[in-house]
Amino acid sequence: MVGYNDKMRTLLDTVIGKIADFEVKIDRFSVIKETMTKGYENFKFRQPYQQAMYNCTLILEEQTWPWDEELAALSNLEARNLEDFLPRMLAKTFIECYFAGNIEPSEAESVVQHIEGILFNSSTSVCKSLPPSQHLTKRIVKLERGLRYYYPAMCLNQQDENSSLLHYIQIHQDDLKQNVLLQLLAVVAKQPAFHQLRSVEQLGYIALLRQRK
């Protein structure tokens, strides 16, 4: 959440309170379901470079499902399914907080305790803490050193004559210092890479270099 410092607590209380006492409203469910359905159906019209990044995510990340499978699952869902699922989801609540900006450490700790109080100690909340043994870690497929992988895929929009090339380089395991250095490298190299690929070699209208998060 982002907002004025003196209003953050009020905003936080509102959001967390809605989560703790969440109620499925059939009319809103129908609107959101229709919006999501259109989003999935229009996926094939995304630009080729967006589809390339999506395919990269499917290949590398665990617990990721193709858009067409998600669309098929969504088409069969009704409000009652969400109502049945909600208690099971909230019974495995995991909280991870990150604070940045004009806030003291003691205030940040107080906010976390306040969130835990609303979610876990409220008489109306069904939230329960997820056991440590079930905490998930973000994992991606490790590419072996010295090997090259090639994955071709047709653009989903047959009317789109454009194409895209995504070159992915895997650097290191998740590490705070290494991540910061990699982010710094991406910032420094972004403009020279764009100039070389877009202006000098003119390889494509869209050319970018960035850190994959």
Rank of each mutant, 00 (worst) to 15 (best):
M1F: 11
V2H: 15
V2F: 14
D6I: 06
I16D: 04
A20K: 01
E23W: 08
I26C: 02
I26A: 03
V31Y: 11
E34L: 05
K38H: 08
G39L: 06
N42M: 09
K44G: 11
K44M: 05
K44L: 15
R46E: 06
Y49N: 07
C56E: 11
T57W: 15
L58Y: 12
E62R: 14
Q63N: 13
T64M: 12
W65A: 11
P66C: 10
P66I: 01
D68S: 11
E69H: 13
E70K: 15
L71T: 07
A73C: 15
S75Q: 06
L82H: 00
L82V: 00
E83Y: 00
L86H: 13
P87E: 10
P87N: 10
T93C: 03
T93N: 12
E96D: 15
Y98K: 09
A100L: 09
A100F: 09
G101R: 14
E107F: 05
E109W: 08
S110A: 15
I118R: 01
L119W: 15
N121H: 02
N121E: 15
T124Y: 03
V126G: 05
P132G: 03
H135E: 09
T137R: 08
K138Q: 12
K138H: 11
K138D: 06
I140M: 14
R145M: 07
R145G: 09
G146F: 00
L147W: 00
Y151W: 03
P152R: 00
C155R: 05
N157H: 04
S164T: 04
L165W: 01
L166G: 00
H167L: 10
Y168D: 05
I169R: 01
I171K: 00
I171R: 01
H172M: 05
L176F: 14
K177M: 01
N179C: 07
V180D: 06
V180Y: 01
L181H: 09
L182F: 03
A186K: 03
V188G: 02
P192C: 07
H195T: 05
Q196P: 04
L197P: 01
V200L: 10
L203W: 02
L203H: 01
Y205F: 14
Y205D: 04
L208H: 05
R210G: 14
R210H: 08
R212A: 02
